[in-house]
C-alpha cells in the first residue's frame, strides 16, 4: 500500500509539474482595429484622435509580439458598416476553437430604442461607422449585428475593446466646449432611451468599454488620444500594467490599470467597464 501511495504521489507531482511555463501552443491570432475621425455625414461631428488611438493600439500590439499580418486596420473612409461587418465575419469564420480574437473600435457610439425586444434595458447600443446617415438609423452598426457576426466564432479567447460612448447621457456638454474634451457620443432622433448595458452577451469573449452606461467617453488634445485608449497604450508600454510582475500583461491587469487612470484623469466623469464571465481566468494580451 505504501508503494502504491508513493506512486500516486509521484504521479500527482508529475501531473502538476508537467505544464512548464510557456505560452505558445499554436494559437492563431486575429485582430481588427478600427478608428474613425472624419465622418461623411456633416451632421456627425468629427473627432480628432480616434485614428491616433487605432494606430497607437496597433503599435502597442506589434511591440508585444503581435505580427503585422495578424492585424487588420480600418481607418476613416475604410471603416464602412459593410466593411467592418465583413471583416468581423471573416475573422469569426477563420477562428479555431483555441484561437485569439481582438476587436478594437475608436469612434462615435450611441444607442437607439430596441426594435427587436431582446434588450432588457429597451435600447440597442451601436457604433457609428464612417458611412452613417444621420437620417437613417439602420446605417448604424448595432450590438445585435456585431454579436450575430461574432457568434459564429468558435473561440472565447480574446477581447473586444470599445472606446466610444456606449450610452446616452448629456453630461459635460459644456465641458466639451473649449476645454479640449470632445464627447464620442452623437444624439439622433432615435437615440432617446432608458440607458444601455453590455449587449454582446451572445459571446463569452471579454469586453472592455471606455465608459459606463450613462456616460460619454472623451478624447483630449493634450493626450492626443481618447482617455481610455491613452491609458491602455500607456499600460502596455514598458509593461506598466504588469501588476503581478510576471512579464506579461493580461486583460484584467490592463483594464484595471486603464480604469484607475481614466477615472482619475477624467475626474470620474468616465468609468470604464469590464465584462469577464470566467472566474479566476485571465487572458494575456502580450505575447
Amino acid at each position: 500500500m505504501i508503494k502504491i501511495l508513493t506512486f500516486l504521489c509521484a504521479a500527482l507531482l508529475f501531473l502538476a509539474g508537467c505544464s512548464l511555463l510557456g505560452t505558445g501552443d499554436g494559437t492563431a491570432f486575429h485582430a481588427l482595429i478600427v478608428g474613425i475621425d472624419m465622418y461623411i455625414d456633416d451632421n456627425v461631428p468629427d473627432l480628432k484622435w480616434c485614428v491616433s488611438d487605432a494606430n497607437g493600439m496597433r503599435q502597442a500590439l506589434l511591440q508585444h509580439g503581435w505580427k503585422d499580418e495578424e492585424i487588420t486596420l480600418l481607418l476613416n473612409g475604410e471603416a464602412t458598416k459593410d466593411r467592418i461587418l465583413s471583416e468581423v465575419q471573416s475573422i469569426a469564420e477563420r477562428c479555431g476553437a483555441g484561437d485569439y480574437i481582438l476587436i478594437y473600435y475608436s469612434g462615435h457610439g450611441t444607442y437607439i430604442s430596441d426594435s427587436g425586444g431582446d434588450e432588457s434595458d429597451g435600447s440597442d447600443e451601436a457604433i457609428v461607422p464612417v458611412d452613417f446617415d444621420f437620417d437613417n438609423i439602420s446605417t448604424l452598426l448595432l450590438d445585435d449585428e456585431l454579436g450575430t457576426a461574432v457568434s459564429r466564432c468558435r473561440t472565447e479567447k480574446g477581447v473586444f475593446i470599445f472606446d466610444s460612448c456606449n450610452s446616452g447621457g448629456f453630461i459635460a456638454s459644456s465641458l466639451a466646449e473649449g476645454s479640449g474634451m470632445r464627447s464620442r457620443y452623437i444624439d439622433t432622433a432615435g437615440t432617446r432611451g432608458t440607458g444601455s448595458s453590455g449587449d454582446l452577451d451572445i459571446v463569452n469573449i471579454p469586453v472592455l468599454a471606455a465608459s459606463g452606461e450613462d456616460e460619454d467617453s472623451f478624447e483630449y488634445d493634450n493626450l492626443q488620444h481618447g482617455a481610455f485608449t491613452y491609458f491602455l497604450i500607456d499600460g502596455l508600454s514598458d509593461l506598466t500594467a504588469d501588476k503581478n510582475a510576471d512579464g506579461y500583461i493580461s486583460i484584467r491587469e490592463l483594464f484595471h490599470y486603464a480604469e484607475i487612470q481614466t477615472e482619475y484623469y477624467t475626474i470620474h466623469y468616465q468609468h470604464p467597464q469590464l465584462r469577464f464571465s470566467r472566474e479566476f481566468l485571465d487572458i494575456l494580451i502580450t505575447r
Binding site: 505544464s19 512548464l20 511555463l21 510557456g22 505560452t23 505558445g24 501552443d25 494559437t27 483555441g98 485569439y100 479567447k157 506579461y248 493580461s250 479566476f280 481566468l281 485571465d282 487572458i283 494575456l284 505575447r287
Partner: peptide, 13 residues
Amino acid sequence: RSDYKGYYYYDSF
C-alpha cells in the same frame, strides 16, 4: 497560478 500555455491562465486562489 496555472501555466500560461494558450495565452491564458487561472489565477491563484
